[in-house]
Write a protein that binds this DNA or RNA. Structure first.
Lengths: 368, 368
DNA sequence: ATGAAAGCGCTAACAC
DNA sequence: GTGTTAGCGCTTTCAT
């Protein structure tokens, strides 16, 4: 007797539970939220009725009564630094806005840090901690600097959500982002698609400290693994490079080293900095394939003019927005998220890029 | 003076408007909803205050008071027929469930039809109409049979939303789906990626009445246009085929005609039936590229074993779920959707398919 | 430990 | 036309 189509059963309320259990609504509420001050007998009785009637709280009614404003803190790279993190910040603002629409008071206070300076990350994380937020969203770009921060949050029982970079076993409520190893494999698949001979490929880390960056290591590992897969007829070769900042003096000479590689068929840039090398490489090596990350405006231009072939979209905006929503669901609705929310690995080409741009953030209202 | 970060302003309520305007809450409500029975002067005053205070209704509070159960009707192909429409139906149920979580009473009544029989579509549409639903979701696979149906819905002021197939100027509240022309272009881009010589490509419509199917015509148009683009060095050739049902006697001989094409480099199947031809073609023609549609289970197997190279995901589940949510937003929150909600054209490969499968429908709570 | 009751912001029914 | 009021389901406070 699961459901009988034409019979719309009214949803059962706390009052119904109270009546059936022979107690007051207040008692039922106390049981539901484990607030204590309930006799063992009453508690048991209520639990039974709750289970029997299969009580599901009305989440909308739940929020109405609350007039607390939840304070969320976000620890993310400075959004003036690059377009990727600007999109992330936009996602936060969007999430905040949409919650406001539903009368949920959720103020998000950003704490920015310089994405290339660990000290800046540390400093901002301290400031954040002292603000005693109700929940935290963080892009933990620095692994070792993060550990004590997360420990303190855990001690204070402040829930925190990771975006962008997954750190294992730090006590996070949830990680929201991509499977970076698989992301590297995908890049390898695309860059070698349809090639019948053995070739050489380069992976470029631009202006990054590879040792400190778990996420880039993961991408590289996946990339290499796919290209050297046991069951492939071709034996491909992969070279890894760490380049200085595009504006540095050494940059061009480093790039020349890359394009001088024998039999080079493709270049994979592990971050969103693909635009800074794409046109130079494409002009130097005929038929070369170039793959990068993210729909930032500089990359879009490269996609249009054909210097970048594919982009993998990490969707920073959606990651951040979902992070805020997840915190809201946890704090207000007491809905716990899965520990891992892995986003699909979206492949962007000149022919589908427009469909991704128009689609971003245009949803609103009650939803998935 | 847009916003001052640390100052959390309490959201303004109908009562605030009423006080400022020197009228009662009831009057304000009447103005907001154009219910009439308000003097011109009062109305004007209220409008002014509304604008000045930038009133945004609390959507959550709005639903609480309602105890009406909205009845939605969905006109979709029989979900037992194929996996694509099963996913669509799952999306409907998911949307319904999530609304229920928020205490919104939305019952969705499905009206199924045989996707190959226009009469069945007509018949179901009539039944649906007589049930006098509050809103309608429809996959209008038959263009001409749809016209009078939509006319009647419009006359009765019953809002309806189109999914899957876009029909112009029929008075729909919104269309949710993909840009099918662009979808064809994308397939062409992928199927010709990296090829340096002029080649031949085939587009296959399996068990479909091409004349009646606007959506397939659009895909074909996009596919051809891209491959014959003026600025390409190669002059590719495209042949179009309409095949009978895979279980028919003629099927194999028709397929043989396809693979006999000179210089054939790729095959594009316009529907989710790619699995029915992929392995045969792949075995017959070396290095051929095959592209199809949708993450139905038969296609997934082909992706895994390498007989299908790419899939374009139409995401029927998300289309349907969003359709239900959009109807809810319209009927309850009076939020009007954009007339066109175009989904991104998602490219699926063996390396990213798993990330799409795990991601489906695992979001819940207040959200985008 | 328990119950009664006052809201949360909005809607709708009912007086005037 | 306009104002008043009783809920919607849940939370929270305040007596008991």
């Amino acid at each position: 007797m699961l459901s009988c189509p034409h019979m719309i059963q009214k949803s059962i309320r706390i009052r119904d539970i109270a009546l059936k259990a022979g107690v007051s609504e207040g008692t039922v509420d106390r049981v539901i939220h484990n607030r204590g001050k309930v006799s063992a007998t009453a508690a048991k009785k209520v639990q039974q009725v709750l289970a029997k009637l299969n009580y599901k709280p009305n989440l909308i009614a739940r929020t109405l009564g609350k007039n607390k404003t939840y304070r969320i803190a976000a620890l993310i790279p400075d959004h003036t630094y690059d377009d990727y993190w600007r999109q992330s910040y936009d996602g936060i603002k969007l999430g905040e806005m949409q919650l406001a629409q539903f009368g949920i008071h959720f103020s998000v206070e950003p704490y920015f840090f310089n994405m290339h300076r660990k000290e800046s990350y540390l400093e901002s994380s301290l400031k954040l901690f002292h603000s005693k937020p109700d929940g935290v969203l963080v892009a933990p770009l620095f692994f070792y600097a993060s550990k004590p921060f997360f420990k303190k949050l855990s001690e204070k029982h402040i829930p925190f959500i990771l975006i962008n970079t997954q750190l294992q076993e730090v006590g996070a409520l949830s990680f929201i982002g991509q499977d970076l190893f698989q992301s590297g494999r995908l890049a390898a698949e695309l860059i070698s698609y349809g090639l019948t001979a053995s070739r050489t490929f380069a992976i470029l880390h631009i202006e990054e400290d590879l040792e400190n960056s778990v996420h880039l290591q993961e991408k590289e590992r996946g990339f290499k693994e796919y290209l050297n897969q046991y069951n492939k007829p071709q034996k491909h070769d992969v070279k890894s490079f760490v380049l200085d900042a595009p504006k540095s003096n050494s940059f061009i000479s480093q790039l020349k080293e890359v394009i001088a590689l024998q039999n080079l068929a493709g270049v994979f840039i592990s971050t969103s900095k693909g635009y800074s090398v794409a046109s130079f490489i494409k002009q130097s090596v005929p038929y070369i394939r170039i793959i990068g990350y993210d729909l930032i405006k500089e990359n879009l231009a490269c996609l249009q003019n054909g210097t970048l072939d594919f982009l993998i979209n990490q969707n920073p905006m959606r990651q951040a927005k979902l992070g805020i929503q997840t915190l809201a669901n946890h704090l207000i609705f007491k809905k716990d998220p899965p520990p891992l929310h892995l986003f699909p690995l979206e492949i962007i080409t000149p022919q589908n890029v427009s469909t991704y741009l128009s689609h971003e953030g245009n949803q609103s209202g009650i939803s998935i």
